Amino acid sequence: MRLIGAILSQTTAGWLDALTLRLDVVRASAGPLGHTAAILVAVGACVSILLGRSVVLAVNRMRRGGMVFVMALNFVTLVLTYALLGLLVWVTGVLMIGSHVPAEQVVWAVLWACSPLVLGFATAIPVLGPAIDRALMAWSLLILWSIIRDLYATTLWRSGAIALGTFLAVWALSAVYSPLLARIRDVLWRRATGRPLYDSSRYVLEQATIEGSEADLNGWLIEPDRAQHEPDRVEQEPDRVEQRERR
């Protein structure tokens, strides 16, 4: 219990310090305890982002298994994205500053830059959602700026140039590989379950051709408006259900 308390305490303290641009990156990222705290922040960011997108997931009628699957892959993608950001920061630091900070230390430190995304659930607010999303990304950039300045002990403008350059580079790369990852995700889910991750209209129409499926257009559950105009059909449908059960 002491270990869990220590992890939660360091995670909370590091998260609040990151949000207020007062993070001691060397202390917060040191050892297994610091690594665990950084991972918990990433997990919280992933869960919060999915909650923010819950409206879209609900519209597409995503099932619980699909949400867990998407959450796991989004977490992996988020960690890999910030790991890539850390590697780019390390390479840029070596080239521009000549620093010999270990690459692993830079990656773990940069992972704290996703702290604002823990508030990603706020993007579900109607109308304000896109603006909140941009504000969180800008906040993340500011935290990255402060982390680089602290980690490399360099000037304000040089650390800002490294932060902005690497941030834009990762954003451009993610625009390229994100659609590919999404396609791979959908294929894996379809192969594993036999159904698409999102219930598109095309899938519903395909299911409509299968007798007894959840989207069977010939089933006895018909729309109320149609029932008013087709009372004879409503009376005939229970007989059809009995015939199916006898089969």
Rank of each mutant, 00 (worst) to 15 (best):
L117D: 08
D150M: 05
A135W: 15
A6M: 12
M96Y: 10
L51A: 03
F167K: 00
A161R: 00
S178A: 15
G31Y: 07
R61V: 11
A45R: 03
L84W: 12
V55Q: 14
L88N: 00
D232M: 12
Q207E: 14
L80Q: 04
W15P: 06
I4Q: 09
G194T: 04
L197F: 07
A113R: 04
V170L: 07
S146F: 04
A13R: 14
G98S: 07
L88F: 13
S115D: 03
L3W: 14
I184S: 10
Q228S: 05
S201R: 14
I147V: 03
I97T: 05
T81F: 02
A13V: 06
L144R: 03
G34K: 01
H35Y: 10
A83R: 06
S54E: 14
L117G: 04
D186N: 14
M137N: 13
R246A: 14
L180A: 09
G65Y: 04
R185G: 09
L188Q: 03
L87A: 12
L128E: 06
P116T: 02
L128T: 05
S174C: 08
A18N: 01
S48G: 10
M137Q: 11
N74L: 11
V234L: 12
L16Q: 07
E230D: 07
P130L: 06
Q105N: 07
S200R: 05
A182N: 14
A113F: 00
P130H: 05
R195F: 04
V70P: 01
R247T: 10
D133L: 07
L33M: 12
E223M: 00
G14Q: 02
Q10D: 13
A175S: 15
L136M: 08
Q10E: 11
R183T: 12
S9I: 00
Q236E: 13
V41S: 03
V55H: 14
G86H: 01
L57Y: 15
I49F: 10
V204W: 12
D133R: 11
E237C: 09
F75G: 15
R63G: 15
V106C: 03
S178M: 15
A109M: 05
I143N: 06
A124T: 04
G31H: 00
W90I: 00
Q105T: 08
E104P: 00
R240P: 02
R2C: 12
I49Q: 08
T155W: 01
R158I: 02
N218I: 06
L57D: 15
F121E: 03
E206P: 02
V107A: 01
A83C: 08
R226H: 10
L136E: 00
Y177G: 00
V176S: 02
L117S: 06
S54Q: 08
T166M: 11
A169T: 08
A58Q: 13
I132A: 06
S213E: 09
A124W: 06
L16M: 06
R64A: 14
I39L: 12
Q105K: 14
R183H: 13
E245P: 01
S115C: 01
G52M: 05
V91F: 15
G165L: 13
I222Y: 09
L21T: 01
D133C: 04
V56R: 13
